[in-house]
């Protein structure tokens, strides 16, 4: 069972910058990580996806959320709060992935129960390593609760 999960997990990437989406995909490709990556590009879409409402009625429940902070429509900070306040979604680990190195952002994220905060490195090799470590940690090492059957 663990094997299965390790081989194939559901990741939701909330990112408005297509460049970053591409880089993330490229980084995963680089390490031949086989995950299912869903991408939404604003805060509202992210919540719709998680609540399976609107355009996302058939969306899968993600095992891991990669959340950018600066998003159109609904800000990443608000999305984080809503995820962590909703009993249905609060068990899903949220990795904040942001360019911001601001102490205020880091502190606020942890206070709102982000599972970790990662500053996007400017160096591509570094970025690849971050994605690999994330994969390692959250998919192979960490034991996550099984997705509740809806």
């Amino acid at each position: 069972m663990n094997q299965n999960r390790a081989q194939m997990i559901e990741i939701l990437l909330v990112e408005d910058n297509p460049g970053d989406v591409r880089l993330t995909r490229e980084a995963m490709k680089e390490y031949k990580i086989i995950n299912h990556l869903s991408v939404v590009s604003d805060g509202e879409a992210a919540l719709d996806f998680l609540m399976k409402t609107g355009d996302y009625r058939d969306a899968p429940t993600p095992d891991l959320i990669l959340l950018d902070l600066n998003l159109p429509k609904k800000d990443g900070r608000e999305v984080l709060i809503e995820i962590k306040q909703n009993p249905k979604t609060r068990k899903i680990p949220v990795v904040v992935l942001s360019t911001s190195e601001s102490d205020a952002d880091i502190l606020a994220s942890y206070e709102n129960h982000a599972n970790c905060y990662i500053s996007k490195p400017i160096d591509f090799d570094q970025f690849i390593r971050v994605v690999r470590e994330l994969q390692n940690f959250w998919v192979s090492i960490v034991k996550l609760p099984q997705s509740a059957p809806d």
Partner: peptide
């Protein structure tokens, strides 16, 4: 710290890619 660095990251990351 954020907005200026993001385009920079794009430049350097894609160049590296």
């Amino acid at each position: 710290s954020h907005d200026l660095q993001e385009p920079l990251r794009m430049v350097s990351s894609f160049l590296q890619l």
